[in-house]
């Protein structure tokens, strides 16, 4: 139920994102989702890719600071109230969401969550019969 998300440290300067994508492109890696968190000086690029281990090794070879982070993916109808419900389940248990992002596939949305306690979050979401995606399913999208 845990997805390995690729996190890359980037300085805020033009061309760096392009370089990351070019490295991944050479390895024929596919990207399911991408999100950027940034400050005025640096950013963190977060990616869900088809082969995270291979992506990590190839980026490291090019001197990028890379890490794999455990995130959870939940599939739900792409309506706000479902997103809200998921967050409510977690906050009721004092599980904090460090960040989240989502994308739509048809009428469904896939919600990626980084939680303070991943195991506890998975348990709680399962209890509420939320549809959790396996990493292998996600990488195939």
């Amino acid at each position: 139920m845990i997805t390995h998300q690729l996190s890359v440290f980037l300085e805020n300067k033009s061309g760096r994102l392009t370089e990351v994508l070019e490295v991944l492109g050479e390895e024929n890696i596919r990207i399911t989702a991408l999100s950027v968190a940034d400050t005025s000086e640096f950013g963190i690029l977060r990616l869900i890719v088809s082969d995270p281990d291979k992506a990590r090794v190839s980026l490291k070879k090019k001197n990028f600071t890379v890490n794999l982070t455990d995130v959870i993916s939940v599939m739900a109808p792409n309506e706000a109230r479902y997103y809200a419900k998921i967050l409510r389940i977690l906050s009721d248990l004092d599980i904090s969401v460090e960040y989240t992002y989502a994308f739509s596939v048809g009428a469904k949305s896939i919600i990626i969550l980084r939680c303070s306690d991943t195991e506890k979050a998975i348990e709680a979401l399962k209890r509420h019969e939320m549809e959790l995606l396996k990493a292998s399913d996600l990488y195939k999208i």
Partner: peptide
């Protein structure tokens, strides 16, 4: 330079 062993993916941690 940030040490890779320390780098996770939180902005707050880097800040």
């Amino acid at each position: 330079e940030v040490d890779e062993a320390f780098f996770q993916d939180k902005i707050s941690q880097l800040e």
